[in-house]
């Protein structure tokens, strides 16, 4: 029997916004396929070794007070282990505050910068209380590198005060169709490095984006050198929720049966994808 160990970083501290639903989604979608899953809760007292023994990592958002406690532990103790694990191919999902932590730094409206883990080539600035938070339904189109999936969109709900800016080495997770995304200006959302994804999508993101959940499960199976095939599930409710979220974000749901390249290419034309001009030409030629 196939087995996976999912490391859940700071479930006690970083537990707001329903992000535990991501663990519930991974757990169920693995078990429905007969894959045994163990969830390891990685808390302040856990060691870097506990973390390295996992096949996948997840960390969610939190309140400010809890964030500060986790930030110190991350930077001093777990950060280097997370960077090493991701470099080794371990898949990971970091949502909201966790995503910000994985950048170089977080610059609050007042006071000194808070150093981050430096996993993603991103920085986050809080522009002050007079600048409105980015709150609302969000829909993004996946970056071209990730679009071998059945549906090219991700849906969720964002609620963040900080604006995240991508450095030259960062690849965004996707392009914003509706909502703010990283900073509300450049229309990028999230970041990807190796098999680690960071994003602002609450919702939680995995239950109504089952393609993303399965993508992470496949990566985890691959990383642990197991058969990565996943039997299809009855995802009608999940896709109905995905579509409802697209509608609430003001996006007309894509017609999946249609020629799959059409909507993506239209967006790719608008968006300058960092470091992917050749692929765009290739796609146009097709």
């Amino acid at each position: 029997m196939r087995r996976l160990t999912i490391g859940w970083l700071y479930p006690r501290l970083m537990g707001t916004y329903g992000d535990r639903g991501n663990i519930t989604a991974l757990l169920n979608r693995a078990r429905w396929r007969g894959i045994g899953v163990e969830v390891v809760q990685i808390e302040l007292a856990s060691s870097a070794r506990d973390l390295m023994g996992c096949d996948m990592l997840f960390m969610g958002g939190a309140q400010d007070r809890e964030q500060k406690i986790a930030a110190v532990d991350l930077r001093l103790r777990k950060g280097p282990a997370i960077r090493a694990a991701v470099a080794d191919g371990m898949p990971a999902l970091f949502v909201c505050a966790a995503y910000q932590f994985m950048g170089h730094y977080y610059r609050p409206a007042e006071g000194p910068d808070l150093a981050g883990v430096g996993l993603f080539d991103i920085v986050t600035h809080h522009l002050g209380v007079h600048v409105p938070r980015c709150i609302g339904n969000i829909a993004i189109e996946l970056a071209p590198a990730l679009t071998d999936w059945p549906i090219p969109t991700l849906v969720g709900f964002e609620n963040h005060g900080g604006r995240t800016y991508l450095g030259p080495k960062a690849t965004p997770l996707g392009a914003v169709i509706a909502g703010y995304g990283n900073n509300g200006v450049d229309r990028t959302e999230g970041a990807v490095v190796h098999n680690a994804l960071g994003c602002y999508l609450h919702g939680p993101v995995l239950p109504k984006n089952p393609h993303l959940a399965d993508h992470l499960l496949r990566l985890a199976l691959r990383h642990s050198r197991q058969d990565e095939s996943l039997a299809p599930l009855d995802d009608r409710l999940e896709w109905a929720a995905h579509e409802a979220a697209l509608r609430r974000a003001g996006v007309r749901p894509p017609v999946v049966e249609a020629e799959p390249d059409t909507p993506r290419r239209r967006l790719a034309d608008i968006l300058p994808w960092p470091g992917r001009p050749k692929e765009r030409e290739h796609r146009k030629a097709v």
């Binding site: 992000d19 535990r20 639903g21 519930t24 709900f157 609620n159």
Partner: peptide, 9 residues
């Protein structure tokens, strides 16, 4: 509340 994430809690 426009955010329905809370149902997962």
């Amino acid at each position: 509340g426009t955010d329905v994430s809370w149902i997962w809690d």
